[in-house]
Amino acid sequence: MNDPEAADLTAFDPERDPRHWSHVKNATRFRVAQVILQRNRGRDPLAVVSGWASPILATAATILLLLGAANVLIGRPDPPAASEARRLAYLTEAAVLRGHGPTGAELMAAIHPREAR
């Protein structure tokens, strides 16, 4: 099937009037930006925070664990504060992995393990 030659449809080209078309595009862009802004405002703040909080918490937990491990390797006794820090680090790491923060009871158990039992 031989296609007939295309008819010249450039009379309908929106960019034959660049100023008008630019106005249409900018008006659309502005409205779209408002929609996106509204969308971002409506998002769950915890979801937004968790997006950047998780890597920070994970890094902090890893550093604490490494410090604890270094302590053991050089044979220094484990002071109470260091044990507490290590328990908190484990707890934080577990919280990051499961995607939500530790409960009050878990925190208490990490800080005062005997009292919590």
């Binding site: 929106p14 249409v24 659309t28 862009r29 779209v32 930006a33 996106i36 969308r39």
Partner: peptide, 16 residues
């Protein structure tokens, strides 16, 4: 995910 630049790319691709 709320990315305005991506919406703008779609606009450039599809408004005409």
């Amino acid at each position: 995910r709320g990315d305005a630049a991506a919406a703008n790319r779609l606009l450039e691709r599809y408004l005409r």
